[in-house]
């Protein structure tokens, strides 16, 4: 591990620790095991959505379709399962595949048809939203099956199941980013798609795979969240648009692509969750929470861009890098 290059990630963890200490001062009892555990569980949902988002952002894109991929998976699962556990055996894999498929469509739109990622994923998000509204007529759905509730709130030997799931996913993401050709290709594509193409990197496959993964994790998070709240409802995915991107940015990734790591995103998810828990303790409203969220993002991203500009200064001619030739 090269410390200098992972400074942004270390900073994210440092920020998290400071925030924790701060919180324990204003709200004693915050550092209790119970509270830490529930904080970690809440962070897991953000962390899982942000997993796919991390890959997409490292690859130089962004996925704005996560809210309604998440929401669609949640609503469809409760509708199809009708509170029964048995159908989950085919419903869960099917919805995960459907989420991945939506992601793949995002990726193909971006990589083959050259649709800007913001437009492509935003359009898909709205289409899904409309589809679900048409399908459900806006009516509430039945409660989540017990098995899903177990995954979201259950414990194995006192340890939350969803955390185990998160740890497994985090290990998987870390290996994918650090130890595979796909990960190396992803960083290259995010740094310069042109250079990657000239180097024989399968840029199309790499981009599509990143979006596919994001669709997959959003759908997974949607089902788990349904288990947590015991019910799916319209709009439940909306907060995850901002938090998934914020977690990646706080975790040290450049929003322009090419840098960052899921290890950083984990810290980002935790920071956001701690903030969410801290503000009610300070008697701040949810409106104030949003304001703080926004400020935190601005500060972290501008710090990151400062790091970026110092890099530009170190490379006299770097700033003149043009885009790929037409």
């Amino acid at each position: 591990m090269n410390i200098r290059r992972h400074r942004a990630i270390l900073l994210a963890y440092l920020g998290m620790i400071i925030l924790l200490l701060l919180t324990s001062v204003v709200a004693p009892g915050f550092l209790s095991a119970t509270h830490l555990r529930s904080t970690a569980v809440l962070a897991a949902f953000i962390g899982i959505v942000a997993l796919g988002q991390t890959f997409v952002i490292i690859g130089g894109g962004i996925d704005l379709s996560v809210p309604w991929v998440l929401n669609s998976a949640a609503v469809l699962m409760t509708l199809l399962a009708n509170s029964q556990d048995a159908p989950l055996l085919w419903i869960v894999p099917m919805l995960l595949a459907a989420g991945a498929l939506v992601g793949m469509i995002n990726g193909l739109g971006v990589a083959i048809f050259g649709v800007p990622p913001i437009i492509m994923t935003l359009a898909v998000n709205v289409i899904l939203q409309g589809g679900i509204l048409v399908y459900t007529g806006g009516a509430p759905t039945s409660t989540a099956p017990k098995a899903i509730q177990f995954l979201a709130v259950g414990r194995i030997a006192g340890f939350p199941v969803v955390l185990i799931l998160w740890i497994v996913l985090a290990a998987f993401a870390t290996i994918l980013l650090s130890k595979t050709a796909f990960g190396r290709h992803l960083y290259a594509v995010g740094t310069s798609a042109t250079v990657a193409e000239f180097s024989g990197v399968p840029t199309l496959r790499t981009t599509v795979l990143a979006y596919t993964l994001s669709g997959f994790t959003a759908a997974l998070a949607g089902m788990l969240l349904t288990g947590y709240t015991a019910q799916a409802y319209l709009g439940m995915g909306d907060p995850y648009l901002f938090t998934s991107i914020a977690a990646v940015a706080i975790g040290g990734a450049s929003i322009l692509g090419g840098t960052g790591h899921y290890i950083g995103t984990i810290a980002g998810a935790l920071v956001l969750t701690i903030l969410t828990g801290l503000l009610p303790a300070l008697n701040l409203s949810s409106g104030a929470l949003l304001i703080v969220y926004g400020v935190v993002i601005l500060v972290t991203v501008s710090l990151a861009s400062e790091a970026l500009s110092s890099l530009f200064a170190a490379l006299p001619r770097f700033g003149r890098q043009r885009g790929p030739a037409a």
């Binding site: 050709a181 250079v195 770097f318």
Partner: peptide, 30 residues
């Protein structure tokens, strides 16, 4: 060189091996 040949913001190592990652990958792991 700068726009087609090199990832300027990446290391010498990453640039050198960018086209040949398969050469040091076994069972999918580098």
């Amino acid at each position: 060189r700068r726009n087609h040949g090199l990832l300027l913001a990446k290391s010498v190592r990453e640039n050198l091996t960018l086209s040949v990652i398969q050469r040091f990958t076994r069972f999918g792991i580098t």
